[in-house]
Simulated assay, not measured.
Amino acid sequence: MFNERSEHEPEEYDPEEDLRDYEGEFTPSVRVPRAPEAPSVPDESDAPSELKYEFWTMVLVFNAAILGVSLGGMYILFRGNWDLGGRIFLGGVVFFLYGLYRYQTRTFGRDDDDGTDEDGTAGDDVDDGTEVTADAATTETEPDGSAADND
């Protein structure tokens, strides 16, 4: 009854009616590029079975280490049970150390570079700019790398 308009009432004023469409005028049109095709996923059977075995063994060892250290720590801190918590924590540390040892001793397909040169001697491949000659007493090395004679 009160919500109805009378026929003598003017139309309601719309404040946006006389405004320009700035959004349509000043918004730049953007061309969205297409995404490149995704590369194909390699087959899981590409890895050698020995490598897969070593990988999953390492995963299990380090998961056991994380579980032991965290669970043992929680038994110690929250329950005050040093006996059980300490054993579990120590077991986690042992698993972690075993995992580190096992990781360091495996090559995992890397080349066997033991730090020796081709002739079997332990070599230092770092060039420090000095020259070693047969007559070291009479020959010195200049900063530019040339040899200076002391004669």
Rank of each mutant, 00 (worst) to 15 (best):
S146T: 15
P15H: 03
T107R: 07
E131W: 10
E17F: 15
D14W: 06
S29Y: 10
P33R: 14
D113G: 08
T57S: 12
F2W: 15
R20Q: 09
V132T: 14
S146I: 06
V69I: 03
P39K: 12
A122E: 09
L19D: 03
V30N: 04
A136V: 06
Y98C: 01
G145F: 03
G86F: 02
S70K: 15
E37Q: 10
E118K: 15
N3C: 01
F89M: 07
D117I: 09
E54A: 03
T27H: 06
W82L: 08
E23V: 04
L51N: 00
S70I: 05
W82N: 13
L84P: 06
G129M: 02
D112A: 10
D151W: 07
I66G: 05
G86A: 04
H8Q: 15
R106P: 09
F95V: 03
E37G: 09
L77P: 14
E4F: 07
Y75A: 05
G85L: 00
F26P: 02
D144R: 08
E23A: 03
P15N: 03
P39W: 08
T105N: 05
D14F: 01
V93L: 10
L90F: 13
A35E: 08
T130E: 13
R79S: 09
G91M: 03
T121M: 14
Y98L: 05
P15I: 01
S45Q: 11
E23H: 12
T105C: 03
D144S: 05
L71I: 12
A134G: 11
V59W: 14
D43K: 02
R79F: 10
V61N: 06
P39Q: 08
E17Y: 14
G72A: 01
S40G: 07
G73H: 05
L67G: 08
E17C: 02
E44Y: 11
I88E: 00
G92Q: 02
Y53M: 06
G123S: 11
K52Y: 11
E9L: 06
L97Q: 12
G68F: 01
D149S: 03
D46M: 11
A122L: 15
G92C: 00
D119V: 06
L90V: 11
F78T: 12
T107Y: 05
D117S: 07
D43N: 04
L84Q: 13
G80Y: 13
V61S: 04
F55G: 00
S49I: 02
E131D: 11
R110G: 01
G72H: 01
V126S: 11
G109A: 00
E37F: 13
V132Q: 12
D83Q: 15
R102E: 00
V93Y: 12
V32K: 14
